[in-house]
Nucleic acid binder design. Structure first.
Lengths: 124, 124
DNA sequence: CGTTAATATTACTATATAGTCATATACGTA
DNA sequence: TACGTATATGACTATATAGTAATATTAACG
């Protein structure tokens, strides 16, 4: 785990006072979400916990691959795990992730809509 | 640019009805934000447009690297460009990006706070 | 025109990581 | 204890991309 220093970018004159370390932390969070398979796993957990076998079935991915992505998401603090006998159940431990995804969906839709408008305007 | 199909993950029974293509688009957006240098450029543009030379100075990065990241951000619809003589000015074209970053900051702070709490509890 | 300055692009290297197969580990059960 | 099942991990390959140096492009200006 990194620590957050107080050094902000370009000598404290940044209008967005984020240190290099803070930027790296934020980028890490975005990067973890920047894989379709991990988003798929998050989506599969939206309605509650699932064990690994269920997530393999949900996603259609290989067991090793699912396991690795689950580890990444857990280390990022997005998921948590609960063991029950042979099974390991994963669940969303940071529900704010859904707001993030919806936020992104909104901006994508806005962009696609504007592209559609500009394309239709070019036709005239 | 990809198109969004209506196929949702695991045969339409997903609680989060996102197609593979939609997941890829969302992941793309997150991945673009998943680089500290690009976040740094976005931060440098928070208060208004800047030309490339200014952004090079702001970030301390190489000209070619800044130029490439600016292209990535522009293609993602996050920035736009305006030419003025020899200079090219870049500016934020999707201001919702700042809400996204603040959202992520919030969840990171929450996580760090909870880690601090659990660590202090283990001491007792 | 030719020169200079700002930006973009190309070619390259190094690194990170997604996916896969094989194997290890952990746990329940006979 | 031995065995089977669920999950995790190690080793490997393939791919993507960040950073860099060199070069190309574009525009202003003499």
């Amino acid at each position: 785990m990194q620590t957050i220093s107080n050094k902000s970018i370009h000598d404290g004159k940044s209008p967005f006072p984020l240190s290099q370390d803070a930027l790296a932390l934020i980028a890490d969070r975005f990067r973890v979400l920047g894989e379709p398979m991990r988003l798929k796993l998050i989506a599969a957990l939206k309605d509650g916990e699932r064990n690994v076998s269920e997530l393999i079935a949900d996603t259609g991915a290989q067991q090793a691959n699912v396991s690795r992505h689950l580890r990444t998401l857990t280390q990022a603090g997005i998921l948590s795990r609960r063991k029950s006998g042979l099974n390991v159940y994963y669940f969303i431990s940071d529900p704010t992730i859904f707001e993030l995804c919806e936020h992104v969906c909104g901006s994508i839709q806005k962009r696609l809509t504007q592209q559609a408008i500009s394309i239709s305007q070019k036709k005239h």
